[in-house]
Structure formats: C-alpha cells, structure tokens
Computed example of a mutant assay.
Amino acid sequence: MEKLWRRIWILGLLFSIWSFFSYSNDWEFGSRGEHILPFKNSKMKIKDEKIMMKLEEDKSGDFRMKVKVRFVFENEEEGKKIIGFVTPEREDHDAEEENSGKTKRLGITNFLSKVNGKTVSTQQKALQDILSKGILDKETWEEYQEKKNWKSDVYYLEAPFFKGENVVEHEYYYTGSYGIFERDFDYILTTISEWKNQKVENFELRLDMGNTYFRLPYTFWKNHKKIEWELLGEGKSVVVEEGENQKRVYLRMKDGVIRYRAENFAPDKEFRAVVITDSRGTVGQVSNPKHSKYILHDKLTELFLRIQMEDEEFYRGDLETLTNTELEFLRNYPYAFAGYDFSRKDLKAYFSQFVWYLPLGTKAPIKKEEVISVVDDILKKRRETK
C-alpha cells in the first residue's frame, strides 16, 4: 500500500530569490534550472523585504507562479554596483534538444528589475565567458569550477546605488516542479543569513493561490516554531502531522490571500508551497486523517484513490459493499474537489467536513472520471433488480 502513497517526482527543480548578500561566495546549489544564487559580494544591509506570489492558471489548466519582490537596502557607499547571479543548467531537457545545442537553460521568464524606480537591464552570459568583463575574478571562477562541475549561466546588472536607503524590485514567472498529483513552488529564504545584518527588520510574504487546494510549511525554523499564517478572506486550514517533528498546513481559499509578517526575520528553513492539482492527491502520507474540525480523507476517499490506481476488477467488490448513499458520495468526489456547490444537503454536509472542500459555484469544470461511470452502472443495476 505504501507504493500508492509514494510521490513520484518527475523533476526536482528548486529556485531561489534574486537577493544580495555579503561575505560569502561559498554556496552549494541544491538543484538546477530555477535556482538563482548571488555571487557578487555587497556591504548592503537588508531592512525591508516584501514577497508577493500569485498563482496563475492558463487555458490548458497548467500553473505558473508570478513573483514580485521589493527590497529596501541600507547602502554604505554611493556608486555603481555590479550584482551577479549564477544559475546551473536545467536537467529537464531531452536528447533532441541536447543534440541541437538548444537546451533550455533557465526556467524563469519575463524577468524585470528596477533599482530606485528605474528599470535596469539584465545581461546573460555563460560563466566561462565573463572573466574578461571583470564581473567575476579568476579566484572565484576557479572556485565555481572546482565545486560546480556543470555548465552555468550568469545573470548580472549594473546600477547606481545611493548612500543610504535603496529600493530594489524585481518580478518574474516560474513553472515550479512537477509531481504526479501536485506542483511544487519552492523559494529559498535562508540566504537572509548571508546579508550584512543576517536578518530582515520588516518581512512580509503574501500568497494569492486562487481557489486551489494546497499546503504550506508549518515552520521556517529548525526549532519547529509555528508560522502564524493569516487567512485574509474565506478559507479553511488545518495543521497535519506527517511524521516525527514534521507538520504541514493544508489550506483551501476562496478569493483570498495568505499572509505572514514578522520583524527581525531570520529563517533557517526554506519555503515551499505545494498545489494539489488532482483529486487523487487528497490522500497523502498522513497516518491519522482526523485533525481539529476538518479531515483530509476517510475510507471513501481512500477507495476513490484506489479506483484511480487499480483495474476495476480489484475494487469492484469493495464498491458492491457500499450503501447507495455512500456510492452517491463517492461519485461526487470529482465535483467536490472542483468546488461544486451542491444543492443536496447530504452531499454538502458530507464534503464540508474536508479541509479541501469549499463551494465555489456550479460552473466549475468537471473532468469525467472513471468513478462516476462505474458507480452509475452499479446504481442502475440495483434499481433494475428491485
């Protein structure tokens, strides 16, 4: 049964914020493609940071994340500064791309950057091509060659910085990493420890996840201190234990946002928002589904997953043992996950116990799933034999 719960990742892509840090060039890449790390030292102190992430869905149902970040830095010396970022190459290219020499290197698109209100152009070059530009000294280049044994790109900008406060803004899109029932959107926060003051005096993270069902981290710290997420708008949330000292927050929002604000913010763990893209993802590696006033799944939810994963001959017998009411509940799982607003009181009452159900309307797109036709067939035969 464990194999049914095991998540199979297609891509293992992470990314990090475009940030400025001091003192250290020694940074290990955790993955490739959407992972951008600063390499140019800076003596600037970070005062304020506001991250706004908005999940967008295209006509095909595919997701991407729009990110807007606003920094306020305290700079010690006036003058032009070159700020550079290194990204490893992507790993999700196929052999045809590789042979053609047109491998897609970066998963971030539509990147825009402003320094003190003025748009700044960003240059892109291969790491081995920038020594002559004076951006990366030979010693640092040799360090990257020694520790990073793959080809990398460098993105860099040059802009004037005032003495005192400087506002740096940027925005971009990225696609996240794909899972079998979900999409991960990771964001590296621990580079904050590399800034001069090793913390952000005023920090805010704002998430607009639309009407999706998703999960967020329980903590940003190794001591397991709880994140105080604020739900701004209609929504449901529940904390779920997924193992020893491992918790997650599961949420469903309706036209609202989630916010976290803190002073002197200094995380030592990263951020990950996981969009559960398929109704089969309502069952996860959670041993006890009962939490607070909501649950994640029950025996019908588990049976629903089996229907999606096994041939009919293996689950047909289980369906035959259900009452007509239970069969009605089961056939409506795809509708419930899409946020269908049921008029039947018994259906609404049953699904309202789940954290992932919020009535959004009666026009939600419903994918015709096997469970609907199988249950309809059983109910029809029962009526005919009466």
Rank of each mutant, 00 (worst) to 15 (best):
M1S: 09
W5H: 13
W9G: 00
I10T: 13
I10V: 11
G12R: 07
L13H: 00
L14C: 01
F15V: 07
S24G: 14
S24H: 09
N25F: 14
D26W: 10
E28D: 15
H35R: 01
H35Y: 14
I36G: 03
I36S: 05
K54L: 04
R64S: 09
R64C: 07
M65K: 02
V67F: 00
F71M: 08
E74F: 06
E77N: 11
G79K: 05
I82A: 07
I82N: 04
P88L: 08
D94Q: 09
E97G: 08
G101F: 01
L106C: 13
I108A: 07
N116P: 05
V120L: 04
S121T: 14
Q124C: 12
K125Q: 09
Q128F: 12
Q128L: 11
S132D: 10
L136K: 00
E146I: 04
K147C: 00
K147P: 00
N149P: 01
W150N: 13
S152L: 12
D153A: 14
Y156F: 09
L157K: 07
P160G: 00
P160Y: 00
P160T: 00
E165Q: 12
H170N: 14
Y173Q: 05
G176W: 06
I180D: 13
I188V: 13
S193A: 12
E201N: 13
F203A: 09
F203R: 07
D208I: 08
F214K: 01
L216P: 01
K222N: 15
H224N: 14
K226R: 12
E230N: 06
L231E: 05
L232D: 11
V238W: 03
V240H: 03
E241Q: 11
G243H: 04
K247V: 04
R252P: 03
R259F: 00
A262N: 13
A273W: 03
I276K: 03
K290C: 12
K290P: 07
D298P: 08
L300W: 04
L303D: 00
L305D: 05
L305C: 10
I307N: 06
E310F: 14
F314E: 15
T321R: 13
T325I: 15
T325G: 09
L327A: 06
E328T: 14
E328V: 13
F329W: 11
R331V: 12
N332G: 08
Y333M: 05
A336G: 04
F342R: 06
S343T: 15
R344P: 06
K348D: 06
K348S: 11
Q353R: 12
W356Q: 01
L360F: 02
T362A: 10
P365D: 05
K367L: 10
K368F: 11
K368Y: 12
V374Q: 08
V375N: 02
D376P: 03
D377K: 14
